[in-house]
């Protein structure tokens, strides 16, 4: 399959902060990819590199066979503005015309607005739109130039259910017609609803790159913590680490793990079971090989 966007060994520093650490990934034609990770994980930096807003400190970023810094290359992409920054004084139709003017192929204005449930608002000033309407307009703008790849940064954060559904429908219809989409979110739910492939980003690295189903299984893990001198071989341990005399075990099936632990007769104390955060789960899994218990 054609690779539309590619990062090769990309690192990005902001002063002392390493926002991306040797990230490599391919986005292929027709994919709907979700970038998942907590705030500050490096998702936005990665998107900013792909759309040409920032340059990598080291490594290379390729977009549609060229450099994202090249305006001609960017004719093939669509990006969502933050809806808080939309120019208040302009009307909905005017801003669509303005953005469209930059592209050789332009989506039909009426059809585009209808796809995002904005058809009745063409003449409305942006200052008079609700938060949900602004967000939908912001996402619609990404599709104004009939792009090949669309980058959506947190498209539905803070939206009500109805607005979210309208937005998801718009994104899906683009994908069904062969469009490629990269979206970021810190909600697995949003990524699940749209994407097939999930890339989990944390501490500037790609922690996992897999199908939604595989990732969801990992996210369902629990962290079992206890104090014990030595542990026998236990079933279903995905990852483990030891700190200050406590052992933390990651597992998809905490009940079975505890049953086996008790059966083994190993003395332990201070048993604690809690859900893992997404980041924790992936960090633990990626450091599994080096962990020493």
């Amino acid at each position: 399959m054609t690779v539309l966007a590619r990062a090769t060994e990309v690192s990005r520093r902001y002063g002392d902060v390493l926002a991306l650490d040797r990230v490599s990934l391919d986005i292929r034609a027709g994919e709907l990819v979700g970038l998942l990770g907590p705030n500050g994980a490096g998702k936005s930096t990665l998107i900013n590199l792909f759309v040409g807003l920032r340059r990598p400190t080291s490594g290379t970023v390729e977009l549609l066979g060229g450099s994202p810094q090249d305006p001609l290359v960017r004719q093939g992409i669509g990006v969502t503005p933050q809806e808080t920054g939309l120019p208040e004084a302009l009307r909905v139709g005017e801003i669509v015309d303005f953005v469209s003017a930059h592209y050789p192929h332009r989506a039909d204005k009426g059809e585009l607005l209808e796809r995002f449930g904005l058809q009745d608002l063409v003449k409305r000033q942006i200052g008079g739109l609700s938060g949900g309407q602004r967000r939908r307009l912001a996402v619609a703008l990404a599709f104004a130039g009939e792009p090949r790849v669309v980058f959506l940064d947190e498209p539905t954060t803070g939206l009500d259910v109805e607005a979210r559904r309208a937005l998801w429908d718009g994104v899906r219809s683009f994908h069904e017609q062969g469009g490629t989409i990269v979206l970021t979110s810190h909600y697995l739910e949003e990524i699940e609803a749209l994407a097939r492939r999930v890339i989990v980003v944390g501490h500037g690295r790609v922690l996992a790159d897999d199908t939604v189903t595989a990732i969801r299984d990992v996210v369902g893990t629990r962290r079992v913590s206890l104090t014990a001198a030595e542990l026998p071989e236990l079933p279903g341990v995905l990852g483990s680490e030891r700190e200050d005399g406590r052992v933390h075990l990651l597992t998809a099936d905490p009940d079975r793990l505890v049953v086996e632990l008790v059966r083994s007769g190993t003395p332990f104390s201070g048993l604690e079971i809690r859900p893992t955060s997404l980041e924790e789960a992936f960090l633990a899994i990626t450091s599994k090989e080096t962990a020493d218990v």
Binding site: V51, G52, L53, P71, L72, V73, R74, Q75, I77, V79, T80, P81, Q82, T84, G85, L86, P87, V99, H102, Y103, G145
Partner: peptide, 14 residues
């Protein structure tokens, strides 16, 4: 100071 400004830079224009 507006987030609209970086968005404009992603449009295909110098």
């Amino acid at each position: 100071e507006q987030p609209w400004n970086p968005y404009l830079r992603t449009l295909p224009a110098g």
